[in-house]
Amino acid sequence: MDPLAELDASVAGCAACPRLVEWREEVARVKRAAFADWTYWARPVPGFGPADASLLVIGLAPAAHGGNRTGRMFTGDRSGDVLYRALYELGLASSPLSVSIDDGLELRGLRVTSPVHCAPPENKPTPWERDTCRPWLVREMELLAPRLRSAVILGAFGWQAALPAFTAAGWRVPKPRPKFAHGARVTLERADPSEAAPGAKGPGPVTLYGCFHVSQRNTFTGRLTPDMLKDVLRAAAGEAHIPPYA
Score class of each variant (00 low, 15 high):
residue 101 I to W: 02
residue 187 T to H: 11
residue 217 R to M: 10
residue 80 G to K: 01
residue 242 I to D: 03
residue 77 D to Q: 04
residue 87 L to F: 08
residue 156 A to H: 05
residue 213 H to Q: 08
residue 90 L to Q: 09
residue 202 G to P: 05
residue 139 R to V: 00
residue 107 L to D: 02
residue 108 R to G: 09
residue 68 N to T: 03
residue 241 H to P: 04
residue 140 E to H: 06
residue 212 F to I: 12
residue 161 A to V: 05
residue 46 P to W: 00
residue 204 G to Q: 05
residue 194 S to A: 15
residue 142 E to G: 09
residue 82 V to M: 13
residue 104 G to F: 09
residue 137 L to W: 00
residue 4 L to S: 01
residue 138 V to A: 06
residue 73 M to A: 03
residue 144 L to G: 04
residue 145 A to S: 10
residue 62 P to W: 01
residue 181 A to P: 03
residue 232 V to Q: 11
residue 48 F to G: 00
residue 168 A to L: 14
residue 89 E to R: 13
residue 3 P to G: 09
residue 192 D to L: 15
residue 231 D to K: 15
residue 134 R to I: 12
residue 32 R to I: 11
residue 125 P to D: 04
residue 158 G to H: 01
residue 89 E to C: 07
residue 21 V to G: 04
residue 122 E to Q: 11
residue 215 S to E: 02
residue 147 R to I: 12
residue 126 T to P: 05
residue 86 A to I: 08
residue 87 L to A: 11
residue 133 C to G: 02
residue 216 Q to H: 05
residue 179 K to C: 05
residue 229 L to E: 02
residue 166 F to H: 00
residue 79 S to Y: 05
residue 19 R to T: 07
residue 154 L to S: 01
residue 230 K to P: 03
residue 127 P to G: 06
residue 27 V to W: 09
residue 160 Q to L: 06
residue 199 G to E: 11
residue 53 A to Y: 13
residue 120 P to H: 11
residue 224 L to H: 06
residue 8 D to L: 06
residue 140 E to G: 02
residue 188 L to W: 04
residue 103 D to R: 04
residue 86 A to G: 11
residue 217 R to C: 11
residue 149 R to V: 14
residue 42 A to V: 07
residue 25 E to R: 15
residue 75 T to A: 01
residue 158 G to N: 01
residue 106 E to N: 08
residue 91 G to H: 08
residue 114 S to Q: 10
residue 215 S to P: 04
residue 219 T to N: 06
residue 18 P to L: 08
residue 206 V to D: 00
residue 34 A to F: 08
residue 58 I to V: 15
residue 22 E to D: 14
residue 81 D to L: 12
residue 33 A to M: 07
residue 175 K to S: 15
residue 12 A to K: 00
residue 177 R to K: 11
residue 98 S to E: 02
residue 76 G to R: 02
residue 123 N to M: 04
residue 71 G to S: 03
residue 49 G to I: 05
residue 52 D to H: 14
residue 229 L to Q: 02
residue 114 S to W: 04
residue 236 A to C: 15
residue 46 P to I: 01
residue 195 E to Y: 14
residue 193 P to Y: 14
residue 106 E to G: 05
residue 128 W to M: 09
residue 44 P to T: 05
residue 27 V to T: 10
residue 203 P to Q: 03
residue 87 L to W: 05
residue 94 S to H: 09
residue 131 D to W: 08
residue 170 G to P: 02
residue 113 T to C: 09
residue 51 A to Q: 07
residue 171 W to A: 02
residue 120 P to D: 00
residue 228 M to H: 09
residue 173 V to E: 08
